[in-house]
């Protein structure tokens, strides 16, 4: 049986050179293709702004943008990100200045311990790029996969409204 498994066209892939563009920089890493994107970001590239918490796609702490779409980096395997553009929290500053969304979170008290904040900021970015005028319901839906265990949702909601208004 073991031999017959080897007979089909493409052999299984143990290690693979994966090319991903992360924060506008092309990265080539030799990894097992089922390695989680979050582990590549944090452990291989030391981009520790992307947090890891639940590991099962429930908390949103590891939210990043994959080809401009919000994803949980703990749910994406390396092979699924190959050839894609990834934006992490480290990649959204603009000429050394905070992104307007980050500035809004800072000014509106949109974080307490800060652990959920990178994910919240990226979920907000994904929302505002798709819908420049979200109402409160749309904001809540867009951030429904991002948990703040400090329960600072009031400040987060204020920050997203503020970011929406300042980015118009």
């Amino acid at each position: 049986m073991a031999d017959s498994k080897k007979t089909l066209l493409n052999p299984p892939i143990a290690m693979k050179k994966i090319m991903i563009t992360i924060n506008c920089q092309a990265i080539e890493e030799e990894v097992n293709p089922t390695t989680r994107l979050v582990d590549i970001l944090r452990n291989h590239l030391h981009l520790t702004g992307t947090k890891i918490s639940c590991g099962i796609g429930r908390c949103g702490a590891c939210s990043v943008l994959l080809d401009n779409k919000l994803v949980n980096a703990c749910m994406v395997m390396a092979y699924q990100a190959e050839g894609s553009q990834v934006i992490t929290i480290e990649g959204i500053e603009q000429d050394g200045l905070l992104h307007p969304i980050q500035q809004a979170f800072l000014e509106e008290g949109g974080f307490q311990c800060g652990y959920c904040t990178p994910g919240m900021v990226l979920a907000t970015k994904a929302l505002l790029e798709e819908n420049a005028h979200p109402d409160d319901n749309e904001i809540k839906t867009a951030l429904s996969g991002n948990l703040c265990r400090c329960t600072g949702y009031g400040g987060i909601l204020r920050a997203v409204r503020s970011a929406r208004d300042r980015m118009l």
């Binding site: 796609g57 949103g60 939210s63 994959l66 779409k69 919000l70 994803v71 949980n72 749910m75 994406v76 979920a123 994904a126 839906t141 867009a142 429904s144 996969g145 991002n146």
Partner: peptide, 8 residues
Amino acid sequence: ASPAIRNR
């Protein structure tokens, strides 16, 4: 699920 999961 959530927006991030629905994207995948």
